Computed example of a mutant assay.
Amino acid sequence: MIPEPLPLDEVDLADPGNFTDGITPWRVFHTLRHQDPVHWQPEPAPNAGFWAVTRHEDIARVDRDAETFTSTKFVNLEEVDDDQIKRRASILELDGVRHRALRGLLQRQFGASVIGRYTDFLRGLTATTLDAALAKGSFDFVSEVSADFPINVLARLLDVPDGDTKQLIEWGNRIIGNTDPDYADVLLGSQESEQYRHLPFRSPASLEVFAYGRELARRRRGGTGTDLVSKLVNETARP
Rank of each mutant, 00 (worst) to 15 (best):
G17P: 03
H30F: 15
H30Q: 14
R123I: 14
W40T: 01
D95Y: 08
L105H: 02
R27Q: 15
E4D: 09
A112P: 04
A52P: 05
T126R: 05
D82L: 13
N18T: 11
G17L: 01
P37G: 04
D81F: 08
L8F: 08
N18Q: 12
H39V: 04
H39Q: 01
D63Y: 13
P46F: 06
H39K: 01
D120Q: 12
L13R: 02
A60K: 10
P7M: 03
G22P: 09
E79F: 14
T20F: 12
E93D: 06
V62W: 08
V11G: 02
T72E: 14
T70R: 02
L77P: 09
R103M: 07
A45S: 04
L105R: 01
W40I: 04
V11P: 01
Q107K: 00
A60Q: 12
K73Y: 15
P3C: 06
D36M: 03
N47A: 13
H39I: 04
G116V: 08
L106Y: 10
V75R: 00
L102G: 01
D12F: 04
R27P: 10
F69G: 00
W40A: 00
V62E: 03
F29W: 12
A14N: 05
Q84A: 05
E79V: 14
D81M: 03
A48H: 14
T24F: 03
L6S: 01
Y118A: 04
R55W: 08
Q35E: 13
P42E: 02
P16Y: 02
D58N: 08
L122N: 04
L94Y: 11
V38I: 15
D58Q: 06
G17Q: 02
I91T: 06
H34M: 07
D63L: 11
L122V: 15
F74R: 07
V62A: 00
R100D: 11
K73S: 10
H34S: 08
H30L: 15
V75C: 03
I23H: 08
R123C: 13
I115F: 09
E78M: 13
V11I: 07
V80Y: 14
A89Q: 00
T119P: 03
K86L: 13
N76G: 11
F50I: 03
Q35S: 05
Q107D: 10
N18R: 12
I91K: 00
A48I: 15
D58L: 12
L13Y: 04
R108E: 13
I85G: 05
S90M: 07
N47Q: 12
P42D: 02
T129Y: 09
T24C: 03
S113L: 13
G111F: 13
D12I: 06
E57T: 15
V114S: 03
I115G: 01
T68Y: 06
K86W: 13
G96F: 07
S71P: 08
S71L: 05
V97L: 00
W40D: 01
H99F: 02
P7A: 05
T126I: 14
P25I: 07
D12C: 07
K73N: 11
A45E: 08
V114L: 02
H34E: 11
K86A: 13
A89C: 01
T128M: 15
D58T: 09
